[in-house]
Simulated assay, not measured.
Amino acid sequence: MISAEHDRFLRLKEVIHVTGMGRNTIYTRIREGKFPKQVKIGPKSVAWFQSDISAWMNALRSDG
């Protein structure tokens, strides 16, 4: 698990790379409540917490 001191923001390009999913799939799953929501980091910028993405991936591993 990633501690709060070591957590960082991931931009969409990195989330796509880490998860292997496409942009449309990510936003569809957010709408369905099946993927972590992004956080607003600026007036026109969003990102995801690395810890949220890691937790989501670990949950998939434990379901399978």
Rank of each mutant, 00 (worst) to 15 (best):
I30R: 01
P36R: 03
K44P: 00
M21D: 09
F35D: 14
K37W: 06
N24Q: 10
P36F: 01
R31C: 08
K37T: 15
K44I: 03
K37C: 15
G20T: 04
I30T: 03
I41C: 05
G42D: 00
T19I: 05
K37S: 15
I16P: 02
Y27G: 12
Q38H: 14
P43M: 05
V39E: 12
T19P: 05
K37P: 11
K34Q: 14
K40Q: 13
Q38R: 10
I16W: 02
N24W: 04
I41D: 14
V15P: 05
M21N: 03
Y27E: 12
V39N: 08
R31I: 11
R23A: 01
I30K: 00
G33W: 02
R23W: 01
Q38S: 15
P43L: 06
I30S: 03
G42N: 01
G22Q: 14
P36A: 05
V39Y: 08
G22V: 11
I16T: 04
V15A: 07
T25V: 06
R29P: 06
G20Q: 08
Q38F: 11
K34T: 12
V39T: 11
M21E: 11
R23G: 03
T19G: 06
K37Q: 15
K34D: 13
T25W: 00
E32W: 03
K34E: 12
R31D: 12
T28A: 12
P43W: 00
I41R: 07
K34H: 10
Y27T: 14
G33F: 02
G20E: 10
Q38D: 14
I30L: 08
E32V: 12
P43F: 00
T19E: 10
I16Y: 01
V18F: 03
T25S: 09
V15N: 03
K40V: 11
R29H: 13
G20D: 14
T25H: 06
G20M: 04
Q38P: 01
I26A: 05
G20W: 02
V15W: 02
P43S: 04
K40L: 08
T28N: 12
K34M: 09
N24R: 12
Y27N: 14
I30D: 01
K34A: 13
I26L: 07
M21K: 11
G20F: 03
G20P: 13
N24K: 09
V39L: 07
G33T: 12
K37N: 15
K40H: 05
I16N: 02
V15H: 04
